[in-house]
Computed example of a mutant assay.
Amino acid sequence: MSNDIAYPVFHSPDPVLALSMARRLMELGRCEYTNVSLYAELRSVDEVRRGGAKELPEGWFRGQEPYGEFDDRVPFKDRPEWLVGVRGAGLPTDPMAYAGRLPVDYELLNHAVASVEDAFTASIGPSVGEINWQDLFWPDAPEVGFHGESKHAEVTLLLNTSTREYDEPADGHTILVRVRSVNVDGRQMREPYAHWWLAEQVGLTVIGPGQRC
């Protein structure tokens, strides 16, 4: 079993520019199996409505359920359905239904590349989220002594945050290049591959320490 590590290679206050640069990096490893997934924490009713009713209604929305709010004696049919997960059409229309339920988690998995990224970037507003391109295949880099890989080959665009845990809101957007973690005596042996070859191919460079989930 192996893990990945993600290196930040670009940061910008412009979401359109960040998306464009992330796509350039993604294209280095794109193959016939590559797909894209979206995640977000929508922090206002307006953002939930904009995403659910207009921009991305096919995704899954789930409101917060405070720990202990419902015990095992309360059947699922008697709980608000959207706390389990609903499509955009199933979201509450009454603003009061969102009291104590924010942020609303949003998820859309395994869609075709270039089918949802622009709409998501335009609709997320100040909420935090990410676009993740997975099932890439990083190529060999024989000139720097590295073999390619596919298991942990991904590109992530973080929106309005700089960390994979969404715990540091930011006034900008960060691109992460993800590779397999190989730790030898505390040193990450794949960092040079992410730095010298992958990022460099599109004019970028590693700008911070690696991040783990």
Rank of each mutant, 00 (worst) to 15 (best):
199 A>M: 03
132 N>T: 13
180 R>W: 00
166 Y>T: 07
199 A>C: 08
199 A>Y: 02
203 G>I: 11
180 R>Q: 03
184 V>H: 10
204 L>Q: 11
184 V>P: 02
206 V>I: 15
193 Y>R: 05
156 T>S: 15
163 T>M: 14
180 R>K: 02
158 L>N: 08
144 V>G: 02
210 G>Q: 00
191 E>V: 00
207 I>W: 01
168 E>H: 14
198 L>E: 05
173 H>L: 13
191 E>M: 13
155 V>I: 13
150 S>A: 13
183 N>P: 01
129 G>P: 08
162 S>K: 06
191 E>R: 07
133 W>R: 08
129 G>E: 11
157 L>N: 09
156 T>A: 11
163 T>Q: 15
197 W>N: 04
200 E>L: 07
147 H>F: 06
146 F>G: 08
138 W>C: 06
157 L>Y: 07
137 F>N: 08
210 G>N: 00
188 Q>E: 13
132 N>P: 00
211 Q>M: 00
154 E>Y: 03
172 G>D: 09
167 D>G: 06
156 T>G: 08
187 R>L: 09
157 L>G: 08
142 P>V: 13
189 M>Y: 01
201 Q>W: 05
180 R>F: 00
180 R>C: 01
183 N>C: 12
196 W>K: 05
163 T>H: 12
131 I>P: 06
167 D>L: 14
201 Q>D: 07
161 T>S: 15
130 E>L: 15
182 V>R: 09
185 D>G: 04
176 L>V: 07
197 W>A: 13
187 R>N: 02
202 V>T: 14
211 Q>C: 00
134 Q>N: 14
178 R>S: 12
137 F>E: 14
135 D>V: 12
181 S>Q: 12
199 A>V: 04
174 T>K: 09
202 V>E: 15
209 P>A: 02
186 G>V: 07
205 T>N: 11
147 H>M: 14
179 V>T: 02
209 P>H: 01
208 G>P: 02
190 R>W: 11
166 Y>S: 13
135 D>S: 15
181 S>C: 05
135 D>I: 07
195 H>R: 12
142 P>S: 12
138 W>E: 04
159 L>W: 12
169 P>M: 14
189 M>H: 02
186 G>K: 09
153 A>I: 05
192 P>M: 03
139 P>H: 06
188 Q>H: 04
204 L>D: 09
200 E>T: 08
151 K>T: 05
171 D>C: 09
148 G>E: 14
143 E>T: 05
148 G>Q: 07
138 W>V: 04
211 Q>R: 00
146 F>A: 08
186 G>Y: 09
162 S>W: 03
139 P>K: 06
132 N>F: 09
179 V>W: 01
176 L>S: 05
153 A>M: 01
197 W>I: 02
192 P>S: 01
144 V>S: 06
138 W>P: 03
134 Q>D: 11
145 G>F: 09
209 P>V: 01
138 W>Y: 05
202 V>K: 14
135 D>A: 14
163 T>P: 04
162 S>R: 13
133 W>A: 10
193 Y>S: 03
188 Q>C: 03
160 N>T: 03
142 P>Q: 11
159 L>C: 08
209 P>N: 01
180 R>T: 04
173 H>N: 11
158 L>C: 07
159 L>R: 09
193 Y>Q: 05
170 A>N: 06
211 Q>E: 04
136 L>M: 11
202 V>S: 13
166 Y>F: 15
182 V>K: 07
